[in-house]
Structure formats: structure tokens, C-alpha cells
């Protein structure tokens, strides 16, 4: 492989890792705190992407400006879903919550396909194709912006979890629910808030993805799986772990995309299975909120 392709691959992987961090981080806190594998994560991401698309297409709202709208909307949706649905059975055995979030995913995708059709769509602001080059390596502005915004949001999440009362309540709940309850933490609300954060971050990722890649109603499943792989790679429950996992995964994805494009997802999945088998606790181990 040529050096150029190699450097370009490295740059692409790094840029991609930002967005993937954002994709995985919400999934990770829901898993770590609520002990739920949120299979609807990618579906929420997809809805976030469509919110951006429609705001742009119908009202000409700049996609980056739609970020807070998409996140806020899905925050509310996520809060409701957890508070009035998942909370009802959250302590049930794994199969129940697993199937529940799976069902949510199916419904959201089906409704999206029904109302918005299955076509691929793109958000194309004027600056979509612009970028700069360093040497021969191309860096599109939108991807760089997505990278930076992802890291900023991740940083904000870290600050929120570490330095705010609510964030601490969330972490306390994840560590020891009974102790948290004794401290006066309201568990149902805290759970709902955690899930809402997860969906909002997914929606934010969806918005950023919609600016760089075409979207369709079934786009989410692949991201749910990526989020899972990243959490497994990085170890459950730590923000640095997720960043590391996302970085590793991005390299695997970008380079398998260069060498064996049609098997890109299959390779990602096989990596997942291998990591699960050989390092079930992830490469970075466990920490932070679990």
C-alpha cells in the first residue's frame, strides 16, 4: 500500500474515532449505570440524524446549529422511554430488557421507514465538500468539526459526571443503588436521566454523522454494534476507555475498509468476538462508574 493511502487512512481513522467516541459514550453510560444493553441506541442516533436532515431540508437550518435541537429532543424522548417503559421492568432478567430495547429499535426503524421511506439521503450545506490538505492528505472541514465537537461533548460529559451533584448521583447509583437510595438519590428519575443522556449523545452523534455520510432508517444497527465493540475493547465504565476503544476500532474499520470493503462489518464483528473471548474485561479494564 502506498504511503499516501496509509497516511490518509491514519488521518481518517483519527477523525472517525471522534464521532465513534460520541456514539459509544452514551451506550457505555447506559450499560454501566443501568446494566442495560440498549439495542435501540442506534435507532435514536438515526432519529437524531433525521432531525438534522429535516431541519436543513425544510427550513434551511445549518446542520451544526441543529445539534442542540436534535440532542434536546431526543433527551426528552429518552427520558420518557426510560421513566415510563424500561423502568417498569428494569430489574428483570437480562432477556427481558434485551428484548425490550430490541423491540424499541424495531419499532423506531419501521416507523422511520414508513414515514420517511428507505432512501439514502444527505445533508449538503454549501461547505460540505470543502476542506484543506496537508501535503497530500485531505481533511474535510465537516469531519474535523465533527471530531472537535465530539471531543468537546465528551469532555463536557466528563465534567458533568465528575463535578456536578447530579452527575455524582448518577455515578453513585451505578456503583451501589441501595447506598445511593439511602443518600436520598431518587432512583427512577436518575435512571431516566441517565438514559436520556445516552439517547441525547446518540442523537448528537447522529447529527454529526449526517453531515459527513448519507443516512437511511436502517443506519443505526451498525452503530449500536460499533458502540458495543468499542465498549468491549475499552472496558466498560470509563471515558478514557471508550476513547481508546473508539480509536482502536476506527483503525480496524478504516483499514479493513481499504483492504476488504465488502467484509468491513464482518471483520468488526469478528474482532468483537475475539476480544470477548480473549479479553472479556476489555483492553483497558474496568473503572469509573461500575
Amino acid at each position: 500500500m502506498e504511503t499516501l493511502q496509509l497516511t490518509q487512512g491514519v488521518v481518517n481513522a483519527i477523525l472517525l474515532s471522534g464521532t465513534l467516541t460520541l456514539v459509544a459514550i452514551g451506550f457505555s453510560i447506559v450499560w454501566g449505570i443501568l446494566n442495560i444493553i440498549n439495542l435501540a441506541h442506534g435507532a435514536f442516533l438515526m432519529v437524531g440524524a433525521y432531525i438534522t436532515y429535516w431541519l436543513f431540508t425544510l427550513y434551511g437550518v445549518d446542520p451544526f446549529l441543529s445539534l442542540p435541537i436534535s440532542m434536546l429532543t431526543m433527551f426528552v424522548v429518552g427520558y420518557m422511554v426510560q421513566r415510563y417503559l424500561i423502568n417498569l421492568v428494569i430489574r428483570a432478567p437480562l432477556l427481558v430488557t434485551f428484548l425490550l430495547t430490541f423491540a424499541l429499535e424495531i419499532i423506531i426503524i419501521n416507523l422511520a421507514t414508513f414515514f420517511w421511506k428507505g432512501d439514502l439521503r444527505s445533508v449538503t450545506p454549501d461547505y460540505a465538500g470543502l476542506g484543506f490538505t496537508i501535503g497530500d492528505v485531505q481533511i474535510p472541514y465537516v469531519r474535523l468539526a465533527a471530531f472537535v465537537i465530539s471531543l468537546v461533548l465528551t469532555g463536557l460529559l466528563h465534567v458533568f459526571m465528575t463535578y456536578t451533584k447530579t452527575g455524582n448521583a448518577i455515578r453513585a447509583t451505578g456503583m451501589d443503588i441501595d447506598a445511593a437510595r439511602l443518600q436520598g438519590v431518587r432512583i427512577p428519575q436518575t435512571y431516566a436521566l441517565t438514559y436520556a443522556l445516552g439517547t441525547a449523545l446518540a442523537a448528537g452523534a447522529g447529527t454529526l454523522i449526517s453531515i459527513s455520510f448519507p443516512i437511511d432508517p436502517t443506519m443505526g444497527g451498525a452503530y449500536t454494534l460499533r458502540a458495543f465493540v468499542i465498549c468491549v475493547l475499552g472496558g466498560l465504565g470509563s471515558i478514557p476507555g471508550v476513547i481508546l476503544g473508539a480509536l482502536l476500532f476506527s483503525f480496524i474499520e478504516v483499514f479493513s475498509g481499504i483492504w476488504a470493503p465488502s467484509l468491513k462489518d464482518a471483520i468488526a464483528l469478528l474482532v468483537l468476538v475475539l476480544v470477548l473471548i480473549f479479553r472479556p474485561s476489555g483492553i483497558a479494564g474496568k473503572a469509573f462508574y461500575h
Binding site: V96, F102, A103, L104, I106, N110, F114
Partner: peptide, 19 residues
């Protein structure tokens, strides 16, 4: 075409009420 939504709704109802 909302067949899948029905499937999803059944799953949710079963999981919530009669697992």
C-alpha cells in the same frame, strides 16, 4: 407496512406484562 411495529409492540407488551 407496519408489520414490524406490531411485532415490536407485541414484544414490549409481553415483556412488560407477561414475561
Amino acid at each position: 407496512q407496519l408489520h414490524a411495529t406490531i411485532l415490536g409492540a407485541i414484544i414490549i407488551l409481553v415483556m412488560v406484562f407477561t414475561p
